[in-house]
Structures are given as C-alpha cells and as structure tokens.
Design a protein around this nucleic acid. Structure first.
Lengths: 171, 171
DNA sequence: ACATTTGTTAACCAAATGGTTAAATTAAAT
DNA sequence: ATTTAATTTAACCATTTGGTTAACAAATGT
C-alpha cells in the first residue's frame, strides 16, 4: 500500500526542514522529495509557515513529552533518574537530529515557540523532581547539590551527545 | 576613535550570522546594521560565503581552542578537569550564542567544516587526557568508567546549558 | 597641481523563491 | 450518465536576494 499524498509531503517536509532548518528549506525541495508538484504542496499546506509549524510541533512534542510522566511518577529518586536517562536516550537515538533542530529553531524565533507551543502543550514541570532531590539531601542520602543543577546536568548529558555529534565525531 | 569600515562589517556580520544562521542571514541586513551600502559589503568581502567563512572560523576558533592547552598540560587529573570547566564556562559566558551557532552550521554543512577548518586549525586531541584517566582507574583512585564517556559528559555539562538555554528558561 | 589608487554610493540585473491561476484529470455523489 | 467535488499539473507572477556596474568622492603618491 502506497503512502497517501499528505503522508508523502509530511515525510519529505520533515526531512528537508530538519536537515536545512526553516530558513534553509526550499518548498521546491520538499515537493521534489515528495515526488509532487509545488502547487500541490500549497494545496495541502497553505504556505511554508503552516507546513513548518506542523513539522516543528511534531518534533517538539517528541523532544519534551515523556519527561513529564517520569517526573510525575512516584518512583524513588534513583529509579526515576535511571528511567529518565534510558527513556530519553532511546527516543533520541531514533531521532538523533531532533534536538539540534528544535533547539535551533526555538532560539531563532522564540516568539513562535511561545505562541504556538505553550498553549497547546503543557510544559513538563519538574517541581516534583526538585522537591524529591531536596528531600534526599535533607535525609543525607545524597550530597548537597543544587537540585536544578542536577536536573540540568542530567538533561545535558542525555541530549548533548546528539546535538554535538558532528563535533564529537572528530575527536 | 571610530571603528574602521571593515570592523563595522565584521561586527554586524557576526551579529546577523550568529542569530539567523548562514541560510537566514541577508546581505542587506548586514549592510544595514553596519550602516553602509550593500555594494561596499561586496567590495570588502567578495560574497556571502567568504564573509560567512570569516565569521564562522572565528567562532569555531573560540569554541575549540583553549581545550587543547589544558589537555596538554601536565597538571594532575582533577586540577585539569577543574581548569577545563572553569575556562570553558568563562569563554562561553562571554559568547553564549556561539555553541549553538557553530554546532548548527557544522551539522548543516559538515563538508565545509572539514574543508575549511581541518587543515588550518589542528584539532584538540584529548589523547593525553584519556590516558590520564585510564591511569587513575588502574591506580584505583577513581571509579571504573569509560574515559571517553567521562570526557563527553564533561563537555556536555559545560556546553549544553548554553545551547539549550532557550528551552531551559521555560522550566 | 595632477594622476592614481582606494573607498563609497545609487541604480541595476539575473536567478531563486514563495505563492497563485486556470485548466485538466480523477473520484464521488446524484 | 452526469453533475459535483477533490486532486494534480504546467505556466505564470511578484518579491526577495545575491551580486554587478558605472559613476563619484576621498585619499595618496608624484
């Protein structure tokens, strides 16, 4: 069974946008890669911005979502951390290009991100995680460290290898 | 004393390229921001690619260079790590936009990176650092861990906060 | 003083690019 | 079978964009 035209477009658009970015992507490239006419592209998605929004939202959803459920769970701290890293690295391995793409587009146009993302998708609030770390610190189970720093370090070590891959590959 | 035209161009170009990327940057924007005519821009730098190369090389130089001297030094391991993090974070704080810019442009056109960078600038080889870690592991001073992983984690925690800033700011 | 080189500008050009139109073809509904 | 609606295409259009030209002004050398 062949993919529908819309599916072909979405696959092609994802490919082009993710590798070239919003600014570098050409509608003609997307049409070519989808094997269709450029006008047909505009028939399905009114313009470049609309098409980009679909791709970006989909990508952003993949980058942020599962964190929340892990943070919200009632598992003990270390288990939570393990789950978080494992889960995250698995998802990113399947889409290694996503983090750089999303991060880059957010930084290039953070307005867009606020507008399109914040209202539709509730952000993962790490409140519970932070409190849990503080509790463990008071109990003396773990070293004294800023909970937020710990969280950022965890995220850094999970995501950066994918963002910095082209650079790391040299070393 | 006023800046020379060339300096004005370089400052403007850095600004525009770093915030919009190669693909998103417009020669007209750079000319405007430098307060000059577009033709004058091409008089100083033949074309967009040449101008970009100057800016990119300068940025890349800032991102990679000092690591080498730290890795090559004969300081003991922990001191080395401390120096590395401190140095790196200082440099990045002064140019917080550099990492995302450089990483992104490398991933968008790694050919260019290989061609223009590899021959002019010798890459920091962490060979010595890795051996040092192995030695400490054999001595039993530190836990058994892949030296390369340790290195990547260090770099991740140093750089990622700057790359992911727009995302982290939400949380 | 005069010629030559260097710096600067406005006007222009061709190619690329996002987007539209109108016609043609196919699928669905009556 | 015929009308209607949904797809698809080729040709076209306006704007943007990187880059050039030719003329003009300012230094610089003689």
């Amino acid at each position: 069974m062949e993919k529908s035209t819309e599916e072909k477009i979405l696959a092609a658009a994802k490919n082009v946008f993710v590798t070239k970015g919003m600014a570098g992507a050409r509608m003609q490239d997307i049409a070519d890669e989808a094997g269709i006419n450029k006008a047909l592209l505009h028939y399905y998605f009114r313009n470049k911005e609309k098409l980009f929004e679909v791709i970006f939202m989909d990508a952003a959803q993949k980058l942020f979502p599962k964190i929340n459920s892990i943070f919200e769970s009632d598992a003990p701290l270390f288990e939570k951390i393990e789950n978080f890293c494992e889960e995250y690295i698995t998802v990113m391995s399947e889409n290694p290009y996503l983090p750089l793409f999303v991060l880059n587009e957010i930084s290039k146009d953070s307005e867009m991100f606020l507008g399109k993302f914040l209202n539709k998708q509730q952000f993962p609030l790490p409140q519970k995680f932070l409190e849990q770390v503080e509790k463990e610190i008071r109990k003396g189970t773990i070293k004294k460290i800023s909970p937020l720093h710990l969280l950022i370090n965890l995220i850094s070590m999970s995501i950066f290898p994918f963002v910095g891959k082209p650079m790391i590959q040299f070393v």
